[in-house]
Design a binder for these strands. Structure first.
Lengths: 229, 229
DNA sequence: ATCATGTTTCGACTATGGTCGAACTATGCC
DNA sequence: GGCATAGTTCGACCATAGTCGAAACATGAT
């Protein structure tokens, strides 16, 4: 019966509340210190330390030493993808977190999914891109069209650079809050970072929430209009 | 700190050796009885029963009553996707299963990945399809071309029927044994089932191994020639 | 040097949950 | 009806591992 790689090691790492909290915190995309992660997970520094050591040994996170701080981050987009997959499964099974906190509405509205935009606004952007032909869906996979390529350039991004990465340019990612898709891949990541550069939105430190300024939201809705039914 | 759906419930279910064995067995795509799964997992019937009850409560598997047997199957392709994702993580981290058993070479050669062909032959087929333009890669995603569509018809499948499903027609799936991609999606599933209909290959009951007949292998290699470097 | 802060190590406690033996229920066959 | 097989429930045992207190180890500031 032994066949295939050892799922159990990885899955068991994700199966503990403290570790899961740390990893979801890291889904924000930015690196966090051991102490911050301990607070985020609701455990003491000692226990957090042991958990972090395990996560690193399991290859799920990476460490970067900086002075007397140690910054932890997800090991890569594939880890984030598995986490989002688990969230979708849990959402489908109807097991939402025990107490939906005050941050929850903001998270449903706009949040980071590792390095791209998710939530209602993420879904709206994706559907707007598809609706007016900047993205085409081929076998349910998003593909950048010629008009889309022009838009990307106009937005201040270089398609060639984005394509040069190892990750695919476009990927659709199932949104656990909206049960619809949003845009991942290097294009998704590029668009989000460009929006922060332009001052449209701000990444709330210590959370996954993305806050849009008033002007930014107007610009966003002009660029990605909601298709009227 | 409570944000998002509860990953832990789902992940903890995958984090136990017995349950993970059952689920990987179900990756074969066919439904299995409680007893078969107990044997597959190496536990007694009692423990298996409790595990299966948990997996069903967690929404990872579904049950179908048939006489005095109960047939269990994965709840859907999304579950299979998460499992494959975990396998990729584990493979990258270098944690292969403790003892690669005698079945292992056969598994590396050709196996089912849920409902489509994986292993060396799966990778070979995928690369042959891409090499002669039956599949095109757009942003790393496989897309069926016009010549590909003709080939599918000639192979005895109806592209429209395949496209009518909820799942995408083509999906690439990272192969843990070959570290390259093979073809998933309804097309991947359709091709495998057609190969068994044609007598090219047989699905070994109780394992994920796919055995090709001598004639079948010859036909396979004629249809999907290995691109010479 | 001294102190403070961030992080890890050690040791002990505790609980969750995986395991099986035995008994019980349900279905099918004769 | 009686018997065999498939599956579940109950109860008890035991190990794994998550938890924290106390103390050690770093690094940076004064």
């Amino acid at each position: 019966m032994p066949d295939g790689p050892d799922i159990v090691r990885a899955a068991a790492l994700l199966g503990d509340p403290a570790r899961a909290n740390m990893l979801t915190a890291l889904m924000g995309g930015q690196a966090l210190t051991a102490g911050e992660l301990a607070r985020e997970a609701g455990v003491t520094a000692q226990t957090a330390s042991s958990h972090l050591a395990r996560l690193e040994a399991g290859g799920l996170i990476t460490v970067r030493q900086a002075g007397r701080h140690r910054y932890f981050a997800l090991a890569g987009p594939d880890v984030a993808a598995v986490l989002e997959g688990l969230m979708s499964l849990a959402a489908r099974a109807g097991h939402s977190r025990t107490r939906p906190g005050p941050r929850d509405p903001a998270l449903r509205r706009a949040r980071r999914c590792y390095d791209h935009l998710a939530g209602e606004l993420g879904v709206a952007m994706f559907e707007a891109l598809v609706a007016d032909g900047r993205l085409a869906l081929v076998d349910d996979h998003p593909v950048l069209t010629e008009t889309g390529e022009a838009f990307v350039r106009g937005f201040g991004l270089d398609p060639e650079t984005l394509r040069a990465q190892k990750r695919p340019l476009c990927r659709s990612c199932l949104d656990w809050s909206a049960r619809r898709s949003h845009l991942a891949g290097t294009l998704g990541a590029g668009l989000l970072s460009r929006m922060t550069e332009l001052g449209w939105a701000r990444l709330e430190p210590g959370s996954r929430v993305v806050t849009f300024s008033k002007k930014g939201l107007a610009a966003f809705e002009a660029e990605f209009p909601t298709p009227h039914p």
